[in-house]
Amino acid sequence: MAGAAPDSGTSAETTYRSARVPLLLPTWLVIGIFLILPVALMAVYSFLTKEMRGGVIWEFSLAAYDQFFINRGLFGDEPPSLEWTYISVFGRSIAQAATATTLCLLIGFPTAWFIATRPPATRGVWLFLITVPYWVNLLIRTVSLRFLIRENGPLNDALLGTGLISEPLAMINTNFAVQLGLFYSYLPFMVLPIYAAVERYNFTLSEAAADLYASRWVILREIVLPIVKPGIIAGCLLVFIPSMGAFLAPNLLGGAKNFMIGSLIEEQFKRSLGNWPFGAAVSMILMSLVLILLMLYARSMAKTEAR
């Protein structure tokens, strides 16, 4: 018996080794064609010379990164200093994404908890209801939100009707509208992973802690949160990352008054500016930021597992 086990293991290993290349091929093709190739193209373009009104000239240039980080004044002859324009665009986008993530977490966690603690027979219905809005295209949902919150829209009409306010609230084209749009768009991405984590939570642990005189707060902090933490982190990433690149909500609900990372990149390719290398460079910088975030996540997950 002791000798048989390694034998069978070896044979399985041999079987798979000979088939390794054909088995891995589909994965490598998908990753290569849809991930590595486009990203590599973007990286290369960000180091090329811009052609006026779109396109690139195949000459190495650092102009795109220079434009991002170095300020030489409107006419390009002032002493170089740090360029704040694009950093502030990133700052605004990150702050917006962070707020949206916090709001989603505050509402999403209790929602997920509520669903996970329903009897198994009705959980499906609640989950189903969470996904229903996703049958409609994001653009259409965002435009509908516009109709709801405009000055003479139904929300203001209802509030005026109840007498809570005497003047219509100015909601459209404000930061509030953008936050509302992001929150509404990405809430399910927070609810679903947390639900998956809470559903696996063993509630007898809470009972055991209560028997040992732990308060509700201590139970939540010391027992529940550490166990469902992976779900919370996954939810936060799933909301934070798309919020950072979002431009539908800022453009349609916020009035497009300021660039977001997403609209700044779009402008380089589709609009008058036509600066492909700069658009590629901004995309590379955004991707590096997201990658750092994901690496931090991976590290914190490794730590959790080691514990």
Binding site: L74, F75, T85, S88, V89, A256, F259, L273
Partner: peptide, 14 residues
């Protein structure tokens, strides 16, 4: 010249 107008636009929308 176009560069200058691009810069004015970016500054307006930054």
């Amino acid at each position: 010249t176009q560069k200058l107008y691009d810069a004015i636009w970016i500054n307006l929308k930054k």
